[in-house]
C-alpha cells in the first residue's frame, strides 16, 4: 500500500512531540484529498493549539475568535454553500467559551463539519481545566484534582447533542491503528454528509496532550484507553440518514 503525506500537510506541523493534533490534521487532509474537495474547502480554525494549524495546512482558512468557529463557519457556508466548510476546535474553545456557538450550530443543523479535539484541558494556555477534564484529573487550575462537587461533571457534549436534528455525530480516538482508521472513517462520513447537504456533522476525537499531562506519549495513549474512553464512549451516535430519513 503506497503512502504519502497529503498535499495539505505541506510542511512539518508545530505541535509538541506525541500530540494528537498532527494525526488529526493529517486525517482531515487525507479525507479532503481523497474526496477530491481539498482545493474547494474552507476551514474556520479555533484559538488554542488549533491556531497553529493554518500555517502548516494548505487549505483556505480563517482564524476564528475564541469559541466562535462554528458561527464563523456558518457565515461562510451560508454564503458559499457549494464549498466544504469545517471548523477545527479544541475542548476549551468549543465547549467552554464557545458552548453556545457550538450548540446553536447543531440546533440550527448548519451544514458544516465540526472537528472537535478533546484532550481534556486547555493546552495552549498551559494545561488548565477544560469542560472535558476528568474527575480528579490534575490541571494547573485543579492542582488537587478536579472536584466535581465544585465544577460539575466532565462535559459529554455528544450526549447533549445527539437528540437534536443533526446529520452525523461520532466519537473516535487515536490510541492505535484501528482507532485511527475508524476516526478517519468518521471524518469521511462527516464530510460526505455535508456534501450531500444532510446538515450538521460533529466528530469528537480523544487526543493526547503529552506536555500538559506530563506524560510520555505512549503512556498518554494508555491513559486515554484506560481512563478517558470509559467516560467518553467511542462510536457513532447519530447515523447518517437516521434523523432526516
Amino acid at each position: 500500500m503506497l503512502k504519502k503525506k497529503p498535499a495539505a500537510c505541506f510542511v512539518d506541523n508545530k505541535y509538541c512531540p506525541g500530540c494528537g493534533h498532527g494525526i488529526i490534521n493529517r486525517l482531515v487532509a487525507e479525507v479532503l484529498e481523497e474526496m477530491g474537495i481539498y482545493e474547494e474547502s474552507i476551514g474556520a480554525i479555533a484559538v488554542g493549539c488549533a491556531s497553529l494549524m493554518p500555517e502548516t495546512f494548505a487549505v483556505d482558512c480563517i482564524q476564528a475568535q475564541h469559541g466562535r468557529a462554528a458561527a464563523v463557519a456558518a457565515g461562510i457556508k451560508r454564503c458559499r454553500p457549494d464549498k466544504t466548510v469545517f471548523t477545527y476546535q479544541g475542548d476549551g474553545d468549543a465547549l467552554a467559551i464557545g458552548f453556545s456557538e457550538t450548540m446553536y450550530s447543531a440546533i440550527r443543523n448548519e451544514n458544516i463539519t465540526v472537528i472537535f479535539v478533546n484532550n481534556s484541558n486547555f493546552g495552549m494556555t498551559g494545561g488548565q481545566m477544560a469542560p472535558t477534564t476528568l474527575e480528579n484529573q490534575k490541571t494547573t487550575t485543579t492542582p488537587r484534582g478536579r472536584n466535581i462537587a465544585e465544577t460539575g461533571d466532565p462535559l459529554n457534549v455528544i450526549n447533549m447533542m445527539k437528540d437534536l436534528n443533526t446529520a452525523y455525530i461520532a466519537r473516535g480516538s487515536l490510541t492505535n491503528n484501528a482507532n485511527i482508521m475508524k476516526t478517519k472513517k468518521y471524518i469521511r462520513n462527516a464530510f460526505e454528509a455535508q456534501q450531500n447537504s444532510e446538515g450538521f456533522s460533529f466528530i469528537e476525537i480523544l487526543s493526547p496532550c503529552t506536555t500538559n499531562w506530563k506524560m510520555d506519549p505512549i503512556k498518554a495513549m494508555e491513559h486515554i484507553e484506560k481512563n478517558v474512553t470509559p467516560v467518553y464512549e467511542l462510536g457513532v451516535f447519530v447515523e447518517r440518514g437516521e434523523k432526516n430519513a
Partner: peptide, 30 residues
C-alpha cells in the same frame, strides 16, 4: 530529537507507522 530508523529486512510496508505518526515521517514508495 533522536529519530526513528527502519530495519528493511523486517519491514513489510504495512503502513501502520504512517497511520499512527503525528509528524508525517513515513512514506511508502514504489
Amino acid at each position: 530529537y533522536p529519530y526513528v530508523s527502519v530495519d528493511h529486512e523486517k519491514c513489510t510496508t504495512c503502513g501502520i507507522c504512517y497511520n499512527v505518526c503525528p509528524d508525517y515521517v513515513f512514506e511508502i514508495q514504489e
